[in-house]
Each structure stands twice: as structure tokens, then as C-alpha cells.
């Protein structure tokens, strides 16, 4: 048991060192950093205003009211921001594969995926975290139970989001044109994630829980906060876990293919 624990500690240390370096790098140009964070906060605030206008006129959509949407946006912004700050490499993971950035990492002992995710930190993601936290504080208040559930939802959603984008990026192992495609798919998933879960039914719900799994990035985790139950928890954790397993599987397969290709080419 002890060696496994040591491995884990080494892994976490290596990740933390890389992520910290990336974050400090993103602070380097302070004007640019402030501008990006500010622009993102204004951007997110704008969506909230639009929703406010909508609910002022329509009261609800499929049982969801303004506080529900606010909670959804709060959780999605924070998980999206946390992914960008601490695992910012996900945004152009396909690019890292296609431009050969993994070649150097292949020669090093630590797991590649974690290193790649940690090698970039997106400045504007801090704006997402900030707006998300403000929205959550206003909508959920400072009730410790709600805060705990929200934190759980954010962690589960982050895992599902990183798993999803890793699957999309892994397409680059098979198709050279996957760089913009993987980014588009991620954007589509995000788009689906920012609308009330109650609107999807039939084939749109099927899409939201399969190809563009907003269902596991946002809907299931948010449902856990909206109506906590063991069943809701099982769906959220199970979904994120399943996608994480698929992501690791696809990534490993792709990497094996890459190595074979590299061996032939070399």
C-alpha cells in the first residue's frame, strides 16, 4: 500500500509544480491579465442580466425560476473557471497532440495527460471563478450544507468536463483536422450546459447525455444541489466516473497509437 501512496504523492507534487508555474506565467502580463478577467466578468454578468430579463417576463421555464438558473450558472462558471485555471491545457489539448508537444513528455517519467492539462493556465478563467462565486453567494447564501453540496457538484462537474474535453481532444490521435473540431464540440457542450435541464427531453436529452454530455457536466451535478438524494448523487458521480474511465481509455489507446506511429516514423 505504501509504494502506491508514494506514487500518488509524487504525482500530485509533479502536477502542483507544473500548475503553479503555469498560473504564475499567466500573471506575468498584469494589464492583460486584469483586462481578460474583467472582460470575462462583464461577459458573464451580461448573461445573468439576460436571464433576469427573461424571468421578469416569463416567470419560469419547465419549473425552473431565476434562482435555479443562477445556481446553474454559478456552478458552471466556477467549474469552468477552475478547469481553466488549474487544468488550462485542456483548451488546446488536441493542438498539443498535433504539434508534437507530447514527444518531449513521452521521454519523462510522469503521466503525460496530467502534465499536459497543467501546462497552461487561462487568465480569463479567474473571471469565471469570481463571477460564479458571487452568483453562488447571492443565490445559495452562506448556508454550509448548500455550500458543501455546491462544492461537491463543482468537483464532480469539473471531472466530467475535463473527461469530456479529453475525449474530444483524443480525436486528434486519429484525425489531423480534429484541432478545431474538438474545440467546437467543447463549445457546443458548454452551450448546452448553460440552459435549464428542464428544457431537454426526447432526442435533445439523448444528445445532452451522450455526444455533448452537458448532462454529466452540469445537469446531474446541479440536480444534486437542487434536490439532494442518494439517487441524484449516484447519477452525478457515476456519470462523471464513467466519462473519466472512457476518457482514460480513449487517451491510452490514442497514445499507444501515437507511439506506434512515432516508432514507424522514426
Amino acid at each position: 500500500m505504501a509504494p502506491a501512496l508514494d506514487d500518488l504523492r509524487a504525482l500530485v507534487t509533479a502536477y502542483a509544480a507544473q500548475a503553479l508555474a503555469a498560473i504564475r506565467q499567466s500573471f506575468a502580463d498584469r494589464t492583460n491579465f486584469a483586462l481578460q478577467v474583467g472582460a470575462m466578468a462583464v461577459n458573464n454578468g451580461f448573461w445573468l442580466v439576460l436571464w433576469f430579463l427573461f424571468f421578469a417576463g416569463f416567470k419560469e421555464v419547465g419549473g425552473w425560476r431565476l434562482p435555479d438558473v443562477a445556481r446553474l450558472l454559478g456552478i458552471v462558471y466556477v467549474l469552468f473557471g477552475a478547469s481553466g485555471v488549474f487544468f488550462g491545457g485542456y483548451r488546446d489539448l488536441a493542438g498539443s497532440i498535433l504539434t508534437g508537444a507530447i514527444d518531449a513528455l513521452l521521454t519523462q517519467p510522469k503521466p503525460i495527460l496530467l502534465r499536459l492539462l497543467a501546462r497552461d493556465s487561462i487568465p480569463s478563467a479567474w473571471g469565471d471563478i469570481a463571477t460564479g462565486l458571487v452568483i453562488l453567494a447571492f443565490s445559495a447564501g452562506l448556508d454550509p450544507a448548500a455550500a458543501g453540496l455546491s462544492l461537491a457538484a463543482i468537483l464532480i462537474g469539473t471531472a466530467a468536463w475535463l473527461a469530456t474535453t479529453t475525449i474530444f481532444a483524443s480525436l486528434a490521435f486519429w484525425a489531423a483536422g480534429a484541432r478545431s473540431l474538438s474545440r467546437d464540440l467543447a463549445d457546443f457542450t458548454l452551450l448546452v450546459s448553460t440552459y435549464p435541464a428542464s428544457i431537454y427531453s426526447g432526442w435533445t436529452k439523448f444528445v445532452a447525455f451522450t455526444v455533448l454530455p452537458a448532462g454529466f457536466v452540469a445537469m446531474a451535478p446541479v440536480e444534486l444541489v437542487r434536490a439532494p438524494s442518494w439517487q441524484a448523487a449516484a447519477i452525478a458521480v457515476g456519470g462523471a466516473g464513467a466519462y473519466a474511465a472512457v476518457a482514460l481509455g480513449v487517451w491510452t489507446l490514442g497514445l499507444a497509437r501515437y507511439r506506434r506511429g512515432a516508432a514507424v516514423a522514426g
Partner: peptide
């Protein structure tokens, strides 16, 4: 994709 989400959304609003 944009239409899918927005049409689904407005249909839900119109349904109730």
C-alpha cells in the same frame, strides 16, 4: 446546435 438548444428552450416556454 444553437438552434437545437434555443428551439427546445422556447418550445418549453410555449408549452406551459
Amino acid at each position: 446546435v444553437c438552434l437545437m438548444v434555443l428551439i427546445t428552450f422556447w418550445d418549453k416556454v410555449a408549452a406551459h
